[in-house]
């Protein structure tokens, strides 16, 4: 499997006056991924103040509508009638950390900062034909997204190293799957010391899908009627050509 390695520099500049501030200098980054390839590996690295510190980074992808379905028995038949419709569920969520979360800070702090899959806001859902509370649907949505590899939570995959002088270095990487939605991916950096978040920075990656598959998608969405006509003609043409080949070549 080939991976296209795109490197994003995250430069953390330390101000002399406020040594614990985390300031990020980031250019507008455009990443193009070709959907035919197995994904895009994104490398994040930068600098922090030296000493006892930990980093957590979360990546939140562009929003997507999602629907959860509840199956219930109707006259002995299991049917999915109850629906919970969500608007703006992140299509991708990934949280990276330099240590297991609870060794960096406590649960209360994680909740307060909104870190981790369980703290990811899903918004108010529109529930129809179901008496189940939204919290139950939320729980199942989070776990399904996790099972599908769209919500990722892996602890301790940021590597910290001490750099020259009073500077510490960090490096980590993550994979954007080939079917990632295009749009803005927000990257949020949290710097911790002694269990407290002492600094925060944010940047974003602009993901664009490229290649032939993308052109087809655009065509299908912008010229829907023409696309349908072409789809029918192509299908008919291929069916005709194959039957012609069979008769001419007397294959069977």
């Amino acid at each position: 499997m080939k991976y296209y390695i795109k490197i994003i520099f995250m430069l953390t500049v330390l101000c002399a006056q406020a040594p614990l501030d985390l300031i990020i200098d980031t250019n507008e980054r455009d990443v193009e991924i070709n959907p035919g390839i197995s994904g895009t590996r994104v490398v994040l690295f930068g600098a922090t103040p030296a000493g006892q510190r930990d980093i957590m980074i979360e990546i939140v992808g562009p929003p997507k509508n999602q629907t959860m379905q509840e199956k219930r028995r109707f006259f002995g038949i299991w049917l999915g009638r109850g629906k919970s419709n969500y608007k703006n569920v992140p299509s991708y969520y990934n949280i990276l950390s330099s240590k297991p979360f609870l060794k960096i800070t406590d649960q209360e702090n994680l909740n307060k900062l909104g870190l981790g899959i369980d703290n990811l806001p899903l918004g108010k859902a529109n529930i129809t034909h179901s008496k189940i509370k939204q919290i139950k649907f939320d729980e199942r949505l989070r776990s399904e997204m996790h099972d599908r590899g769209q919500f990722i939570e892996k602890e301790g995959n940021i590597v910290l190293r001490s750099g020259p002088g009073k500077v510490g270095l960090f490096r980590t990487e993550f994979l954007l799957p080939p079917n990632s939605l295009q749009g803005k991916y927000f990257v949020r950096y949290f710097l911790f010391q002694n269990g407290e978040a002492i600094s925060y920075a944010e940047s974003s990656i602009d993901l664009k899908q490229a290649g032939f598959a993308r052109l087809i998608w655009l065509f299908a969405n912008k010229f829907a009627l023409l696309y349908g006509i072409i789809a029918i003609m192509l299908s008919g043409l291929l069916g005709w050509v194959v039957s012609l080949l069979f008769t001419r070549l007397k294959l069977i």
């Binding site: 999602q66 629907t67 299991w78 419709n85 139950k136």
Partner: peptide, 20 residues
């Protein structure tokens, strides 16, 4: 048989149920 057997999970994600 799919209709009569109790599913493992009664609440599931509907694929393709949302658009973007």
């Amino acid at each position: 048989s799919d209709l009569l057997i109790r599913p493992d999970e009664t609440i599931t994600l509907l694929i393709g149920g949302g658009s973007h």
